[in-house]
Amino acid sequence: MAARPGSVTFVAVLTYINGILNIIGGVVILLTRDQMAAGNSATLGGITTAAIISLLLGIVVVIVARGLLRGSPGARAVVTVVMIIDLFNGLFLLFNSQVAGGVIQILWSLLIIVLLYTRRANAFFTGR
């Protein structure tokens, strides 16, 4: 059984932060979506959709982040899938006039995915 590498601990912390930020961001966007859309109903729908996706993904990520610390392959798979969805949500934000938020979300998701699949992380998760 491999010892938990620091990168996995770092990813777990990043995953908790990601989940919390997604929840906060989703709430803020929902509360300010009318101002962000500036009367454009098509943009309003896109912004609302992105906010709801952020909220749901944030909740899932916070729930499964603890499993990463225990070396759960299931938690790793769930976080990977959620980060891929989060990545696409970042692209969605890019195309709905939320460029800065979209870029940050994409880069953050890629960082977590890459760190989850390093050689040491693979040994940790397969050793469980």
Score class of each variant (00 low, 15 high):
L93T: 14
W108D: 09
I53D: 09
T43S: 08
A50Q: 05
G101V: 05
V99R: 13
V64R: 04
G45Q: 08
L44Y: 10
V81N: 01
A51D: 12
I104H: 01
A50N: 08
T32C: 13
A51T: 04
Q105T: 06
V28R: 02
G102S: 12
A42V: 05
A75G: 05
T32R: 07
L87Q: 05
S97N: 15
S109P: 11
A75I: 02
V79I: 07
A37R: 00
L87F: 10
I59Q: 01
G67D: 13
N89K: 07
L31W: 00
M83E: 02
G46Q: 11
G26R: 01
A38T: 03
G74N: 07
S72N: 14
L31F: 11
G46L: 03
L55I: 15
V62Y: 12
S41A: 14
T49Q: 11
G90K: 01
R76H: 05
L55N: 13
I53C: 09
I52D: 10
T49V: 15
L111V: 15
I29A: 06
M83W: 00
I85P: 07
L91A: 14
V61G: 01
P73M: 10
I47W: 04
V82M: 06
L107T: 09
S41Q: 12
R76A: 08
I59D: 10
S72W: 09
I84R: 00
